[in-house]
Structures are given as C-alpha cells and as structure tokens.
C-alpha cells in the first residue's frame, strides 16, 4: 500500500549498512512494543474466541452421549439446514436491494453537495449524517413507531382519504420497511465518505473538462465517479459485510411486527437464538462460522472483481 520511496545517497546508505542492523533491530523492537497492547486485545478478544468457536463447532453435545467430537458434521448440517439457507438467501436479497439504494442516495447527495457552497448545503450535509449518531436500536424503534398502524402517521393520512392504511409490518411489506430503516441509518455515513473523496480531487481537472466542453452531468459521470471509485469500493464492502450480518433492526422489529420476523430471519439471528435460547452452542458456532466463511468469500470476490477500481492488488 505505502512504499517509503526514499532515495538514499551512496554516503548515507554506506553509513546505514555499517551501523544499520543494530539500529534496525532496535527500531523493530519499538515497533512491536507500540503494537503490543493492541495485539494483546486482538488475541484475547478475536483470535482466542474464534479458535474456541471453531473448536466448539467440531463437537456435538447431546443429553445421552455428552459432548463428543463429530468433525465437520455440524457444517454438513448447517449447509443443508433450510433455516440457515433461507436466512442466507434473505440477507442476500436484502443486500441486492439495500446496497444499491444506499449507494445511489449517497453518491447523488455527495455529487450535489460537492457542486454547492451555500450554507444550506452545509446544514444539509450535517442533517443527512445525523442518523449515524442515533443508535441502531433507537432508529429501528422510531421507525417501527412510524410504521405502526396504532400510532403511525400513515394511518392518519390514509384515514383522511377514507382508505385503509397498508400494513407496513406485515410479512410482505416488512422487507421494504427494513430496507428503509437501514438506508436511513447508513446512507448519510456513506455520503460523508464519498463527499470527502470528492473534495480531495484536484479542481483543476474540472477546469480542463469545462474547457473541453463537458457539462455538469458529464463531469460527474466521466470524471468524478471514476476518480472516487476506490471509496465506493470501500463503502460497498462495508455495506456488504454489514448486510450479511443483519441483526439489530430485525431483532428490534420482532416484537412490533408480530409474526413477520421469526427467530431464524437472518443467519446471525438464527445463531443467536440457537445459542442463547436453546443452548446449542456447538451448532450455533458452526452456523456463525459458516456465515463467516460466506462473508469472507463474498467480500473477497467483490474486492477481486473490483480490484481495478479500488487500486488494490
């Protein structure tokens, strides 16, 4: 990613060669020292739990036989478990709708904000970002109130026209209701990231484009978007990882949209309820790991396919 391209003159490199190795070794030790507190936490709360979860996933515990080693049996079970597979397909469907929606809103908003310098545009930029500062739980609570046929404004508005309000919490509509919550919560964050990338483009390029006769739309599509493609890749990667792990919003909506969201609605919810409602820690770990493998494959594929845009190897 970053190469320190320092050209050394012959004199310096000769000096470095003679006194270097000791200095370099001492520097290396300091590097490790600075990094070590993080590494300790990384080991304690990531590596060890992951290793432990993997170990758990290889065992099966039953009342009759106790805990016994069953190898990859839990994984075969997971990848043939309709509840897990349906949940997986569901989060993929969410990703297919949610990620483009958020990305388009974020890009259009960032492009428009980038062309304006008025105070109104500054205020808007802040307002669009505000949902990011709202906890996901509270965001989902607010929207579920707004969707609710009992308190929501929807009911009042439709009543006024003598129509029956659509049930936004029913099994068919809950999908879009959830898409809306996630878009509301995250589009502003993505917008700020993309906006920052747009600001870092050297404006003299626009001048050149204008002289060549490009209009605003052409500048946006042919110059700005290609130049921010690496931030877009970053945004989509985050959105993808987040969507495959969909959890908090459906959990919060569960009690309000009764019957529309079951305990295996997403793979994360399924693993959570297996572990904490049914104490099936072994199988829950296998589900969590299977999800992790799919997240890894998904993000890796995406980064591989977009390697040109992102500038990564």
């Amino acid at each position: 990613m970053t190469t320190q391209a320092t050209e050394l003159d012959p004199e310096t490199s000769r000096r470095l060669a003679t006194s270097g190795s000791l200095l370099v070794r001492r520097r290396q030790r300091w590097g490790w020292l600075f990094v070590s507190p993080f590494l300790l936490i990384f080991a304690l709360f990531l590596i060890i739990p992951l290793g432990y979860a993997f170990r758990m996933s290889l065992f099966t515990s039953t009342l009759a036989a106790g805990t016994e080693f069953t190898g990859l049996a839990n994984y075969t079970r997971a990848f043939t478990d309709p509840l897990f597979l349906e949940g997986m397909l569901r989060v993929l469907a969410y990703g297919a709708v949610m990620i483009p929606t958020q990305l388009i809103i974020a890009i259009v908003a960032a492009l428009v904000l980038d062309t304006l310098t008025s105070w109104a545009s500054k205020v808007t930029r802040l307002l669009i970002f505000v949902p990011y500062a709202v906890p996901v739980v509270i965001g989902a609570l607010m929207w579920s109130f707004l969707y609710s046929p009992r308190f929501g404004p929807g009911a009042t508005i439709f009543d006024a026209f003598g129509l029956e309000a659509p049930n936004l919490l029913g099994p068919d509509t809950i999908f879009f209701s959830l898409v809306n919550i996630v878009t509301w919560q995250w589009a502003g964050y993505y917008m700020v990231v993309i906006y920052a990338a747009l600001r870092s483009i050297d404006p003299s390029i626009y001048e050149a484009a204008r002289i060549d006769g490009a209009n605003g739309l052409q500048t946006a599509l042919r110059i700005k978007i290609p130049m921010i493609s690496s931030s877009m890749v970053m945004v989509v990667t985050f959105a993808l990882i987040g969507t495959l792990q969909f959890f908090t919003e459906p959990v919060v909506m569960q009690s309000i949209a009764q019957g529309s969201i079951d305990a295996a609605y997403t793979p994360n919810m399924y693993a959570f309820s297996l572990a904490f409602s049914y104490s099936q820690f072994n199988y829950a770990s296998a589900i969590a790991f299977s999800l992790g493998i799919l997240v890894f494959i998904g993000s890796f594929l995406f980064l591989f396919l977009t390697r040109k845009q992102s500038g990564l190897k």
Binding site: V35, F38, L39, F42, F45, L46, I48, P49, L50, Y52, A53, M56, I241, L244, Q245, F247, P267, N268, A271, F272, A275, F276, F281, A284, S285, I287, A288, F289, L291, G292, V295, F296, S299
Partner: peptide, 24 residues
C-alpha cells in the same frame, strides 16, 4: 501480513465472536 490480518478481522461476524466470548 499482521496489518492485513487486522483489517480482515472486520469481516468476522459478530455471532462468531459473541458466542465464544460469552462461553469464555
């Protein structure tokens, strides 16, 4: 490689961490 590993850890699903963390 260490830094890549740290960055890659963003992909680990929360359940894969929370369940063993709970047990430990």
């Amino acid at each position: 490689p260490l830094f890549t590993l740290i960055l890659g850890s963003v992909m680990v699903p929360l359940t894969a961490l929370v369940i063993p963390t709970f047990v430990l």
